[in-house]
């Protein structure tokens, strides 16, 4: 496991955060999103997208039954088609981790639990740490934590840094994804700064959003975060993954993220070990696109399972 960087090194890293060129980032993201991926390349991209999905349900009305259904879908997204691969992980609230863990044990599909008072992150550090520990003990092998935006926006970077460090320690061998909630950070500069902070504090993945705030993931924000990952990798040699989440509903959007990922971080990141898509409705749209590509007929949501 990679160690966190020292405080002095963090200072250098944070000091080295340059102002993000907003117009440039948006223009580049928009031009990459226009790239046309068709036919066999599209099928390849859709297959990769499925393998990278964190199939998510984060609702107050989630039941063990719903999580069980989601797990079934995660293992076999299209019951009529065994050539469709399983997704990367199932992402759920901590209380439902035992249900998912029991269903997914030994299948290769990971159990990701949100933690640290998701989605607001506004509670005591001790509780966040305890929540993480319980989630991991219950069987989660990935933890999606939120940063304390209140502390970050008031300039208390130290608190955010320490908290991520403690949660990282509490999550032990579980993979830690740190949610920046970019919709609440206000500027691209803050996004970049929060990315560096999270990576320096030990994040295995940085993730855009909880999905509870609008705007959630956008392409320019993703580009800024990926560039932060790229520069951090050059600086420290540590590999950090990226997970956009929230608002990614169509296969077209998913492919746009893959294009930006490829152009920014290179082919090394086109794997579920380094890239995830947090989504729920996206999976059905991808399945429909695959069917459309294979059969030549536009598809209907009526013929795919509701999740």
């Amino acid at each position: 496991m990679a160690s966190t960087v020292s405080i002095s090194h963090l200072g250098t890293l944070m000091g080295g955060v340059h102002t993000v060129d907003q117009v440039g980032a948006e223009e580049r993201a928009a031009s990459l999103a226009k790239r046309s991926i068709k036919k066999s390349a599209k099928l390849w991209a859709l297959d990769l997208a499925i393998r990278c999905i964190d199939l998510t349900t984060l609702e107050g009305q989630d039941t063990p039954g719903k999580v069980a259904a989601l797990c079934a879908k995660a293992l076999r997204p299209d019951p009529s088609d065994p050539s469709i691969p399983p997704v990367a992980a199932v992402c759920i609230y901590p209380a439902l981790v035992p249900v998912a863990a029991a269903r997914l044990r030994g299948t290769g599909v990971h159990v990701a639990s949100v933690a640290t008072a998701f989605p607001s992150g506004q509670t005591f550090t001790s509780i966040k740490v305890a929540e993480t520990r319980e989630a991991v003990a219950a069987g989660a092998d990935e933890v999606d934590m939120v940063i304390d935006r209140g502390a970050f926006l008031s300039g208390n970077y130290q608190k955010v840094f320490d908290e991520i460090g403690q949660v990282k320690e509490a999550s032990g061998r579980a993979h830690l994804k740190v949610i920046l909630e970019t919709g609440e950070l206000g500027t691209y500069d803050n996004v970049r700064r929060a990315s560096v902070l999270a990576m320096a504090a030990g994040a295995d993945f940085i993730k855009t959003s909880t999905g509870k705030i609008q705007p959630a993931a956008t392409l320019p924000v993703a580009l800024v975060m990926m560039e932060a990952i790229r520069d951090f990798h050059r600086e420290t040699g540590r590999v950090v993954g990226f997970k956009p989440a929230g608002g990614i509903r169509t296969a077209k959007q998913a492919i746009a993220y893959l294009v930006v990922l490829f152009e920014t971080l290179g082919p090394g990141w086109l794997t579920p070990e380094r890239f995830r898509l947090g989504a729920s409705t996206l999976l059905n749209d991808i399945l429909m696109q695959i069917q459309r590509e294979r059969t030549g007929a536009y598809q209907s949501g009526d013929y795919f399972t509701i999740d």
Binding site: G296, A297, Y298, Q299, S300, G301, D302, Y303
Partner: peptide, 8 residues
Amino acid sequence: PWLASHMD
């Protein structure tokens, strides 16, 4: 043909 084959 696209209309007639559209599943929706």
